[in-house]
Design a protein around this nucleic acid. Structure first.
Lengths: 197, 197
DNA sequence: AACGTGTACGGAGGCAGCATCCGTTTTGAT
DNA sequence: ATCAAAACGGATGCTGCCTCCGTACACGTT
């Protein structure tokens, strides 16, 4: 028996039930009140004690990461659509928008995201998703560069930062119009002007 | 006497002393711990009770605005230097950097700044400084546009947002190198390419 | 120099949120 | 039916926010 490392006992029913209730409630609260919402309130509304919440999700980031899991998968799913676009410049554009939407899922999300992205803290549960995003962005950038549609000096990381910025500004309550102008400004910054003059 | 509306009595000595001590201490704490620092700690270290702090500065923003006063004046002073540059494109560039430094004075500063900029809350003591900055930026932008050095579609407000973003990212602890690439990206976004091809 | 008044002080106190710890309950296995 | 492990949950201690009000002090007056 020591050889089989799975074969733990079946996960308890209440554990799954509580976890699901917590995730569901947490998502609602993050949506309504931003990432800074009261965890105590989440626990209470989910019908569990604070201890249970903290046992399932030791930190706010852990809860956040778990709630974001669904959305991460949506993002991955979108990649398939994007990649069969053919046009790498268009693909990059759409990818950036998709990422921005992901960052804007909850108000205040960009802050913990940046903290995780910067981090050599492998214990931060948001770190891995962040690095995945940066790497993915870099690939779209390289493809568009090979097609001569993006300046050579641009890196994926730069556009990750840019998308994060836009999401941050969005989260502060700025209207869509100035946001759109900012997006345009950034796009003008990374796009390669056509060689035809 | 009802006609003269000034002519209150001379301001008390302890008031001035406490105010000065609070500002000095608050600045240190904002520098070391960011804008979210404990006001209770500030009061204690300044040698006053919490009540005194809140009487002088009813909100965190009020304290912040008062502490920023000095730096605002430095910014205005810089404008003189900048304006006698002659080159409007260079002037804009320097102005943006000056603004960015101002926004980066304390970690976390961009958040209350954005909240104030968006606001029709005239009671927010940061609102006025923000609008002054936006207006000033717009003037530099217009000047550079007249010289054909900046795209026509750009507005001062856009670059205000951009500078704020960069400062925000800086405040999250990102290193200088990616920051510089982001600045370059943004600059490429607003600059008008020379008509000579 | 002493006084009186009004202004400012400051700390106690109520509240909210975080995070932990441990006695009790629930759950699945035997 | 019984048992041990696992999970629960709330009481608890802590930090920080902000207010309220009895007290002390500074200033103008006599």
């Amino acid at each position: 028996m020591s050889a089989g490392e799975q074969r733990a006992r079946k996960p308890r029913a209440d554990v799954q039930r509580n976890r699901a209730a917590l995730l569901e409630t947490a998502q609602r609260h993050f949506l309504q009140h931003g990432v800074g919402t009261s965890l105590e309130a989440v626990a209470k509304e989910a019908g569990v004690g604070p201890g249970t919440l903290y046992r399932h999700f030791p930190t706010r980031e852990a809860l956040l990461a778990a709630v974001l899991q669904t959305r991460s998968e949506e993002l991955v799913a979108r990649q398939a659509d994007i990649e069969q676009l053919g046009d790498p410049a268009e693909a990059l554009e759409q990818w950036l928008r998709a990422m921005e939407e992901y960052f804007s899922a909850f108000s205040g999300l960009p802050d913990p995201l940046m903290a995780a992205a910067r981090a050599q803290e492998p214990d931060n549960p948001l770190t891995i998703p962040c690095h995945i995003l940066i790497t993915a962005t870099d690939q779209y950038v390289r493809a568009a560069q090979l097609a001569g549609r993006v300046r050579a000096s641009v890196r994926g990381h730069d556009l990750f930062l840019a998308a994060c910025s836009v999401a941050w500004i969005k989260g502060t309550g700025t209207e869509e119009e100035p946001l759109d102008r900012l997006r345009t400004l950034i796009a003008s910054g990374y796009r390669q002007q056509d060689p035809q003059a």
